[in-house]
């Protein structure tokens, strides 16, 4: 099975394609016929209000829930759920991993599994400013530090594509800008980020393109400029565009 959809404008190299993904819970469709592509080195934001289907979409793409229909493609080839963990890594929202262990032990565990050198662990610790909490148990971390730990875990994985659910939840403005800088730098090195964000201002700051989701359906897809053109709001913010499209 090979994806046949053509590349959207502005995408240099299609890495990942989700095609016609649908997931129903009983009669309700959490996501319905969602199709998008992600290119190497881009930051794609899945934007929508609570209950829009962002998390369901990420989990369906990551293969953590079984989609009722549709598929995921890697460089044009079908990627079954069992092989998706070889291609991408998903950081869920609301996870506090290994609460009884110390922060440094959790980082060392993931670094050990992926055979990451110590220098890389050190870089991740420095990038997310985790030094003050390395000797703290995960259960003792604040929401923000727990989020930083998760992001550091994500950066320690070798995957080309990282899926993150609400990566800026728990951060203040200054911290958010700092984390955005880290993610943008990683994207500049060729990593692809697919971020589910409900804060439109955060999304506008970090993402190259946007997938506007509401009621499980795509309401808009493209860069801010493309979305402005489509909505005929030349200087519109993402918030104004989102309201216009939903």
């Amino acid at each position: 099975m090979t994806a046949t959809n053509s590349m959207p404008s502005g995408i240099l190299m299609e890495l990942l394609r989700a095609a016609d993904l649908t997931k129903r819970y009983g009669e309700d469709a959490a996501i319905a016929g969602v199709t998008f592509v992600a290119a190497a080195g881009e930051v794609l934001g899945i934007v929508g209000p609570n209950g829009a289907g962002k998390t369901t979409l990420l989990e369906a793409v990551a293969g953590l829930i079984a989609a009722d229909s549709g598929g995921v493609f890697w460089l044009g080839d079908s990627l079954p759920p069992s092989r998706r963990k070889a291609a991408m890594f998903y950081l869920p929202d609301g996870v506090r991993p290994y609460q009884d262990r110390f922060t440094i032990e959790v980082l060392n565990f993931f670094a050990g599994v992926y055979r990451r050198p110590r220098a890389e662990v050190s870089r991740a610790i420095a990038a997310f400013e985790l030094q003050p909490v390395l000797r703290k148990r995960v259960s003792e971390l604040s929401k923000g530090y727990n989020r930083r730990l998760l992001l550091a875990i994500g950066l320690l994985t070798p995957h080309r594509v990282l899926l993150m659910d609400e990566p800026f939840d728990g951060f203040d403005l200054r911290q958010t800008r700092s984390i955005i800088g880290v993610l943008r730098k990683a994207a500049g090195n060729g990593r692809t980020f697919i971020l589910a964000i409900h804060q439109l201002a955060d999304a506008e700051r970090v993402c190259d393109r946007f997938l506007l989701l509401a009621g499980g359906q795509i309401r808009g897809l493209g860069s801010l400029r493309e979305l402005r053109t489509r909505t005929s709001i030349p200087q519109g913010s993402l918030e104004e565009i989102f309201l216009a499209l939903t």
Binding site: A40, R83, K85, A86, Y98, E105, R115
Partner: peptide, 25 residues
């Protein structure tokens, strides 16, 4: 950039996993 043939093709070490399980328990 091609994907490994399967998730297990990357031979992950068992030691960190076992150590994690033992420390967890």
């Amino acid at each position: 950039m091609r994907l490994p043939k399967s998730g297990s093709a990357y031979a992950a070490p068992l030691r960190p996993l076992l150590a994690k399980e033992l420390t967890e328990i």
